[in-house]
Design a protein around this nucleic acid. Structure first.
Lengths: 225, 225
DNA sequence: CTGCAATCTTGATATACATCAATGGCCGAA
DNA sequence: TTCGGCCATTGATGTATATCAAGATTGCAG
């Protein structure tokens, strides 16, 4: 594993700096060491979608195409390690364990991506914002950072572009959550979660036990054949 | 590679059958051999989001959690191979090439997922439906299936639940595209793409060459802390 | 062929969110 | 400390899409 970091180049970025540019040849993979970044995609008419927020420990830059189909920029000062794709693949060839590690990393990114897909497609604005706050708290906890009075490393416009909303709608959702005594704000970036259970119940709207009315459940449970 | 299929169990499913159930223990991985399926997530209030359509050759069932966080059901008669996760991992351990193959498969799924994320967050209904038709045509082409007069294997409600719309809105978008002479319909499931370029230009709204005009050093004014 | 049921289309209305427009609060510079 | 600019918040209005409600096709069963 430390072999990996021998071929890394460490780099620093300030807030707003571009780490990786859309349509650039996909020659590098980055791992975020400190700070926060966002994977960004832009439309021809000036709209923006954030595909993922990157927290310390996250990797970015894997793609099946020749070029990146997204940009990455720092939303707070970032330290990142840059790996050449070719060198990385060579190393992986030598140490097959790496491959499993990378695969697991990708699988986690997939799960996060499906979670967001679900939010974007089928949650209303309040549910989106509630699940977003819950998500940031969760990620901070995983990193052993303060997870209750949390610091949001991103601005309202970033939240909006992540959740498919506008800044105004995000702001109003914060106001509603405050009014419900679910959260409290100390400045726009410090969120105290007063009622974690209620926050979760607003934002995490997955279905209960038996979700598939339509179908004949002949096949479940799949016995070993 | 054929070693892989030695530990597969082949199974058939009819339209509407459940291949894999949400919250089930994630013990299997499936590869679709024939037919079409959908990864589905449901909300507590009865809404549905399709996370991905599965075409022949696609894999499903990898997750970083202990349980699946989505269901999979057949939207047309399906033949699928089922692999035990444990056996698969054991095989991978023995033949490291497999790992790279799986990783690449996952990377492609990621790219597709980001594409959908973008559509859900920032496209209007016409753009969503146009890009959807384009996507199905593209997938058929990759499978060496007819890609111009295309057969849609899914119903309007599936398209709606994939694109975060309602069936009515999807239907209206089809009508608009017909009116623009971009597509022609022969029954609800047969789509002739009359003007592929226009279809693409409506649905694929990625930004042009220099996408980051706004992102001078000053774009995120919340400067270095 | 005929009839029925499912699903798609079309129309009318409601509504959540976007857009437009101030106002207000925080933070860094001087 | 005060000032000025950048964001966030709040308010008023507009609009795209959801919802509610009929019809119109399609395709299957008999």
């Amino acid at each position: 594993m430390h072999r990996l970091y021998e071929l890394a180049v460490e780099r620093s970025y300030n807030t707003g700096d571009i780490i990786l540019r859309e349509e650039q040849s996909a020659d590098y993979v980055f791992s975020i060491r400190r700070g926060y970044a966002a994977m960004v995609r832009l439309t021809s008419d000036g709209k923006r979608q954030i595909l993922a927020f990157l927290f310390p420990g996250d990797f970015v830059g894997f793609t099946s195409e020749d070029n990146y189909h997204y940009g990455v920029s720092a939303i707070a000062p970032v330290n990142a390690c840059r790996f050449g794709r070719a060198e990385l693949e060579a190393l992986v060839e030598k140490y097959p364990v790496m491959d499993r590690k990378l695969r697991f990393t990708l699988t986690r990114a997939m799960d996060a991506s499906y979670e967001l897909l679900f939010s974007l497609g089928r949650k209303d604005s309040l549910q989106k914002v509630a699940s977003f706050i819950w998500y940031v708290s969760y990620r901070h906890k995983k990193l052993a950072q303060p997870s209750n009075p949390i610091h949001l490393p991103m601005r309202r416009s970033d939240i909006a572009d992540f959740m498919g909303l506008t800044i105004e709608t995000v702001s109003r959702a914060f106001t509603v959550l405050k009014g419900m005594d679910v959260i409290r704000l100390r400045g726009a970036y410090e969120v105290e979660i007063v009622d974690m259970d209620r926050l979760r119940s607003i934002g995490v709207v997955v279905a209960e036990p038996a979700p598939y009315e339509r179908n004949d459940p002949d096949y479940y449970p799949h016995k070993a054949d």
